[in-house]
């Protein structure tokens, strides 16, 4: 008699394929891309990390969160607190505690510490907010985002308020962000096949049955909230080290909605959907931008007026969702077995 395969063996190809895809993009970029194209790819990878962070919570719990850009904000500002040269911090952010303003951590240290800070905040607010379900929880996460934004946009001595914080070492490049995105994918994957992930997905699909089977929904939601905040915080750190400048406005409604859109277009309940949603939508945006700049095709210059790109991407997303309301991948994952798609047995 054949032993049934473990969940790990059955599904490990998913993260492997996803990471391989990103690696291929990175290699192609390194070989052929210009400097500014490398920046585009870096930004896409950072976005992948953020949206995978969204997946960890939203995909597994079924609760839409508008608040995760807040964790990105926390991570990015923490990165600034830990890595801006102490001389600058003393002038620009005089309210920082001595121990922080004297510190100048290396990138990796700031990455870990700042992501943990985001997770810690998630734990504290999660203790309160994860009691809520459904749309009430969504609104609570939105309220959380509004609170974070208001605080960071006005706390003069610690966040420099609406003024940008500068002096963050710009160390995030294609490979660093590839590392971040891959780490996010692995964390999401191992979480989703863990006991916790399975329990939360059970609660997402059948809450009463799950409760009856001993799943503590509140606790499970809290766990996934904290892990996803860690990943989103990490993407914030990557972003801060990518741009070199942070500003509260960069982590508010704009990024929330565009990231959620990519996530939903990809497929809300699927890790592959989260990754592919970002890659595909970003690719379309990039192609449209090239058209805006003008592309030569066989001697003919095709040029779209500036501003068409945003309109087109909105229309494209609507069309995709009309034809595939569950997103491009729905609940499916990319798997090596039963190629191209097969319903994941773990679900």
């Amino acid at each position: 008699m054949k032993q049934p395969q473990s969940v790990l063996a059955k599904t490990i190809s998913t993260p492997v394929i996803l990471i391989a895809l990103l690696v291929v993009i990175a290699i192609l970029t390194a070989l052929f891309g210009s400097g500014s194209f490398a920046r585009t790819v870096t930004e896409i990878f950072i976005r992948v990390a953020f949206v995978v962070g969204l997946y960890i919570f939203i995909g597994n719990s079924g609760v839409i969160s508008f608040g995760h850009a807040g964790f990105m904000c926390i991570g990015a500002y923490a990165a600034a607190w830990f890595t801006v040269p102490p001389m600058m911090k003393k002038v620009l952010l005089p309210g920082l505690p001595e121990i922080v303003s004297n510190a100048q951590l290396p990138f990796l240290g700031s990455l870990v510490l700042s992501s943990f800070l985001a997770a810690l905040v998630a734990l504290l607010v999660g203790l309160i907010m994860m009691r809520l379900a459904g749309i009430a929880a969504s609104i609570a996460t939105f309220a959380f985002l509004a609170v974070i934004n208001t605080v960071y946009a006005n706390w003069e001595s610690v966040t420099a308020a609406t003024s940008s914080v500068v002096g963050i070492p710009m160390v995030t490049g294609v490979w660093t962000s590839l590392f971040g995105a891959s780490a996010a994918i692995l964390i999401a994957y191992f979480y989703s096949i863990s006991r916790w992930g399975l329990a939360l997905r059970a609660a997402r699909d059948e809450d009463i049955a799950a409760s009856a089977s001993g799943v503590d929904i509140y606790r499970q939601r809290l766990i996934s909230f904290v892990i996803s905040a860690f990943v989103c915080g990490m993407s914030g750190v990557l972003y801060a080290h990518y741009l070199g400048v942070v500003n509260p406005d960069a982590f508010y409604l704009g990024i929330t909605f565009i990231s959620l859109s990519m996530f939903v277009v990809g497929g809300m309940s699927s890790l592959s959907g989260a990754v592919l949603g970002v890659v595909i939508i970003s690719a379309i945006i990039q192609i449209l931008r090239w058209f805006e700049k003008g592309i030569d095709i066989g001697g003919l210059t095709l040029e779209l007026p500036n501003g068409i790109q945003e309109i087109a991407i909105g229309v494209v997303m609507i069309v995709i969702l009309v034809f595939r309301p569950a997103g491009l991948l729905g609940k499916r994952e990319v798997l090596l077995k039963g190629w191209p798609f097969k319903r994941r047995t773990a679900d």
Binding site: L21, V24, I25, L28, T29, F32, G33, S34, F37, V279, I280, A283, I284, Q286, I287, W290, I295, D296
Partner: peptide
């Protein structure tokens, strides 16, 4: 798409 995107970078 990814390959197209990368190739586009050359242009």
């Amino acid at each position: 798409l990814a390959i197209l995107a990368a190739a586009g970078g050359l242009l």
